[in-house]
Design a protein around this nucleic acid. Structure first.
Length: 479
RNA sequence: CGGGGCGUAGCGCAGGUGGUAGCGCGCUUGCUUUGGGAGCAAGAUGCCGCAGGUUCGAGUCCUGUCGCCCCGACCA
């Protein structure tokens, strides 16, 4: 009956009933985002922004630790600049937004709002690069970009999204490739260790790789519903962009050379990944590393003498080692329990008159709702250990979902049958031909997620065409 | 770009055949409550998306238009 009340007040659509609606409900009701008056442009509300800031803080630290520097590039790209690299422009042209007027005057040259900033960085590199002694240049920027998507969903696909884009140039191809792989590993560390999302790491096929790249590496995460989410990409460009933008330097042998380039990015889409990896019917469950509040203190019978005082005292004490929120609003304790569960706070601390009498409090885990009565003196050890246990359980549960939804097949019949009945990763061999990817899309509705770094030989031939197989590919449905 | 849904109070919605605006939640105030989304009472809140048209009269009918959401095809 508590459940009935709950559904009346602040209903979140059950996850099994309508996954898409469940997702949207959480985005809105946990107050992560709101829609703006322009389609596809969402507002990151304080709670959502706080999660993003925690992600950026962790990642930015990792970037700096590996020698990267932050810069800020312009918002607008002149049309002529965008067009310099032909694969790049044909990939992005369909989804760029244009500025054609300044004040009341038509611009001589239209400018697009950056969909990504390779062209801006290259143009800049061509200005500042002179000698091999300057290399590598390891740049990153935190910004938003605009891509005029046709269908949009909060976090997963919005017309404007916030991200970081790293752009580096190197003296040799080997160094650039190493950078590309290193940054992919950085993303993997962020996702697995902090966001608690188990991953598949690999290389994108020709047809799925970034416009203008020689190779695209990606991390793919699996959502509750068995669909894949491309959570981050890292691209190796060779010297294609350098040549297109005439980025040159005097080499060690005093010849003019083109540097080798990389770019890599993750976006606010990660927040969508967190929701769909860890959330449940009560709402969000946040990994402690990025939760705006790791502990919420809920005073019980807060009007009674001493309760609020004790709560404030605890807040003060806990704030020395966790991010803590004290909800001293007028709402009933029950309301607060539900509210903060919906918002995914990993641990709840209840403190009421009975607890104060016994010099204890109640700690409740968000994921299991498991209650423990803890002496107030032990909080400094009990809270971190509960947070760790919760983090381990979240990762374990997600890893279990990934394992349960990964299958290997050798024939098209098996693949089609599975694809029609369940979402997940289907591992199968592939001949390397794009035509077989197209066929896979048509017959099974699957796209190639990546060619995993960890290869296995499941069969000798491609299940689509029967030709000799070159790689094992993971197929799936993606967001 | 196709298919579907929808614009009425802050939010969610109701307003058969035209007659001058309603419900729930939330909000405000007061009292009682407080260990799983509290109760009672009294309030406040409207360019009915926008523009034309039909009509004595339009939330309602007609035409146009703008926008949003969801599902597909395309993309982080």
């Amino acid at each position: 009956m508590a459940n009935d009340n709950k559904k009346m007040v602040e209903a979140i659509t059950p996850i099994d009933q309508d996954f898409a609606q469940w997702y949207t409900d959480i985005c809105l009701k946990a107050e992560l985002v709101d829609y703006s008056s322009v389609k596809g442009f969402t507002i990151l509300r304080p709670y959502g922004q706080a999660i993003w800031e925690n992600i950026t803080r962790i990642l930015d630290g990792m970037f700096k630790a590996t020698g990267h520097e932050n810069v800020a590039m312009p918002l607008l790209i002149p049309e002529s600049l965008l067009q310099k690299e032909k694969d790049h422009v044909s990939g992005f042209a369909p989804e760029v937004a244009w500025v054609t007027r300044g004040g009341s005057e038509e611009l001589e040259e239209p400018m697009c709002i950056r969909p990504t900033s390779e062209t801006l960085f290259c143009d800049h590199f061509s200005q500042i690069l002179h000698t091999w002694r300057q290399l590598p240049l390891l740049y990153n920027q935190w910004c938003s970009v605009v891509r005029w998507e046709k269908s949009t969903r909060p976090f997963l696909r919005t017309r404007e999204f916030w991200w970081q884009e790293g752009h580096t140039i190197h003296e040799t191809a080997e160094e650039a490739i190493a950078e590309t792989r290193q940054q992919l590993d950085t993303y993997a560390e962020l996702c697995e260790d902090h966001l608690l999302m188990p991953l598949l790491k690999g290389q994108k096929t020709e047809s799925e790789k970034f416009a203008g790249a020689q190779a695209t590496y990606a991390i793919e995460a699996m959502m509750h519903d068995g669909k894949a989410l491309q959570a981050g990409t890292s691209h190796y460009f060779g010297d294609g962009f350098s040549r297109a933008f005439d980025v040159t330097f005097a080499g060690r042998d005093n010849t003019l050379q083109y540097p080798f380039e990389t770019s890599w990015g993750v976006s606010t889409r990660l927040i969508g990944g967190i929701i769909m990896t860890h959330g449940d019917n009560e709402g969000l469950i946040l990994p402690p590393a990025v939760a705006p509040f790791q502990v919420v203190i809920i005073p019980v019978a807060q009007h009674k003498e001493g309760v609020l005082d004790k709560a404030y005292e605890l807040k003060e004490r806990l704030s020395k080692f966790v991010r803590v929120k004290l909800d001293d609003s007028d709402n009933s304790p029950g309301w607060k329990f539900s509210e903060w569960e919906m918002r995914g706070v990993p641990l709840r601390l209840e403190i009421g008159p009975k607890d104060i009498e016994n010099d204890q409090c109640v700690l409740v885990r968000r994921d299991t709702r498991e209650k423990s009565f803890v002496p107030l003196a032990d909080l400094e050890t009990a809270i971190p250990s509960l947070l760790d246990a919760l983090a381990a359980a979240l990762y374990e549960k997600a890893a279990q979902n990934l394992a349960n939804r990964t299958w290997s097949y050798a024939t098209m019949d098996e693949i089609v049958a599975k694809a029609n009945s369940e979402n997940g990763y289907i591992r199968a061999m592939w001949c390397g031909e794009e035509a077989c990817e197209d066929t896979m899309k048509e017959q099974a509705g699957l796209s190639s997620r990546c060619i995993p770094f960890e290869q296995e030989t499941l069969a000798a031939t491609c299940p689509v065409c029967g030709q000799p197989a070159k790689h094992m590919v993971v197929w799936g449905k993606a967001y």
